[in-house]
Amino acid sequence: MKLLVCISHVPDTTSKINFTEGDTKFDTNGVQYVINPHDEYCLTRAIWFKEKQGATISVVTVGTQIVEPTLRKALAIGADDAIRVDAEPTDAFYVAKQIAEVVKQGAFDVVLAGRESIDYNGGMVPGFLAASLGYNFVNACIAIEIEGQNVTATREIDGGSEILTTVLPLVIGGQKGLVEEKDLRIPNMRGIMMARQKPLKVVLPIDIKPNSTTVSFEKPPVKSACKLVSPDNIDELINLLHTEAKVI
């Protein structure tokens, strides 16, 4: 089984979000980058398949050189090798087409991507990828088992979950649940040392036109101050919610 885990390089969850150049560029000043949290779940699940079922794991990121520390981290966590498609990740369509090419070249039969990147929150790459490759696709995947060609996967639905069966080849949009949070792998010293020796291949992008452009950004309006109500005056809260906020 050849697994490919798609790694999105995103600002850490605590990052302050600011923009520069007249709100047209994301301000990377002081921002720490991490592996997209959903992708971490995918990667740890992939390592489980490697340890229990002898799969091999490659990781891929579409990005310029600045993403390499993130890919090295994925190698330190346990991927066997890494591929960087040397291009700006212009939009989800562009990224998905680049990854689809990597999948074809490497004949991967399972592609694990995250449900969404926490920066642009697109939630599109996994679906585009599956459609482009003609692979089966499970989104919001919270559990997966693979036996030979047969797959049992669970997806989160509104108000519950749904168990699905399908066959390889497969793309998932994965998230928390694929493994328990306490089981998430973090790099240890040995992993970090080994990661330096592992191959990180840089490939050229294929020629694809993106189908969207992000023009500018806007921060949410500054919130007005919180209205405090005394704990001895709960009627006041109910009144405000009823007559002012009109939500009850």
Partner: peptide, 20 residues
Amino acid sequence: FVLKRKAFSNKAFCFTTLTT
């Protein structure tokens, strides 16, 4: 065709043009 969408986990909005 420009759309306003949520980004950065609700910490900002972005304006995206679909060119198709």
